[in-house]
Design a protein around this nucleic acid. Sequence first.
DNA 1: CTATATGGTGTGAAAATTACACGAATGAGG
DNA 2: CCTCATTCGTGTAATTTTCACACCATATAG
Lengths: 234, 234
Amino acid sequence: MAYTYEYPHPAVTADIAVFSIIDGRLNVALIERAAEPFKGSWALPGGFVGMEEDLADGARRELAEEAGVTPEQLSGLPFFQIGAFGTPGRDPRERVITVAYLTLVPMDRATLVASTDAAKAEWFAFDELPPLAFDHAEILAQARAALSRMISTDLSAEADAVFSFLPEEFTLSQAQTVFETISGAPLEKRNFRKWIKTHWELEDLNKTTTGGRHRPAALFRLTGAKAGAKDGAA
Amino acid sequence: MAYTYEYPHPAVTADIAVFSIIDGRLNVALIERAAEPFKGSWALPGGFVGMEEDLADGARRELAEEAGVTPEQLSGLPFFQIGAFGTPGRDPRERVITVAYLTLVPMDRATLVASTDAAKAEWFAFDELPPLAFDHAEILAQARAALSRMISTDLSAEADAVFSFLPEEFTLSQAQTVFETISGAPLEKRNFRKWIKTHWELEDLNKTTTGGRHRPAALFRLTGAKAGAKDGAA
DNA sequence: CTATATGGTGTGAAAATTACACGAATGAGG
DNA sequence: CCTCATTCGTGTAATTTTCACACCATATAG
């Protein structure tokens, strides 16, 4: 079956930058393309959006198809739009507009499975990326910038989202690692602990970690944001 | 001539939110639609993007065609992408993805001319908008939020853009009006004057306004941003 | 010359941010 | 069981930034 239009139409795809923090480093999920164009290159998971499908839903579907990360696994996690990328020629086949999304997944749920259209699916440290297909390097740069903005000193409405890098129960040191990794700068421990408690409500679970060859750490759970975080529309 | 594809393709449009500050109020340029759908309704200027045309260029072209604001007039002015909007059904004709842009124009250059596809083109106070076509109310809400974010207390990289609301030569009171209008809150005069000078380099032109029934005001020109404004990618 | 309207300036209080050092608790290994 | 290595957890003072606040100056209109 063919589809005919009076005027030419571009194709529309959705691509997803899945970020996680693994061993204190920012990582991105990439797939190795199994088909032309850019066969064999690494790329963001993504693909064509269905005609009756919302853009974000298409992004999630493609993420499941190519990297094995299902919408169920993403449930409760942030999912932001980065923007549309449509420079003519960015896809050698035809005019393709892509809408890029960003999601943040917890370090303890960061497993990828190569699937349809992808030869492999792997985590890459953000500062050691391979050459990427299409304009995905540019898209990733913008995704990274969006992540940084979330925790710029007066917190945006999306700042809560960075807790998605953490397990449900986490230590303050783990939280510090998240903020340090995103900002790229080391933080002073005592100040960080004061600061995080003024901006978020953390419930002390009265449990501790075990197994470390050192003093155990108290476990916390995020229960809410405190007033003072900006509300975005101000 | 007809265009045929193996798979269905959505249409892609670009819409533009043109903001200006007129008499101390945030205003938006709207056009009255001259054609179906939503004929007679007010809408953002915008339209279909050409197949060889960059998204932002398409937006600028449509803005010229519908509201008489030419790319030359926009030269030097900020032009930000807000994002893509593609909920199925947002356009009754066919599946349409729109990419929305935001621009800020100076109060002294804020003239609109209805043109192709538009019955009228007029400024509307942002807090007294008429009912809008499509999902343009949602798009405008996001554009407004983006504007607010530009001046959230630690300034984003885009904060300089708000000076585009001002004439080349402006008084500090005019600048204060811009920041008050965007933030929605009154600012204390002495603090504002101190603050703006710590964040931007303003050249004192050693000229004053005339004609007011009051003490004349000194005129300034923006010459640069000072260190301390964030650089976006941290 | 008086009235009206906006322009322009400094200081002190309060709040937020930064810098900084040491004892505590655990597991590993001798 | 003792020691070592390693991470956890805590408070105070100095600095910087933000905020609150009131009065005289200078122009035009009448």
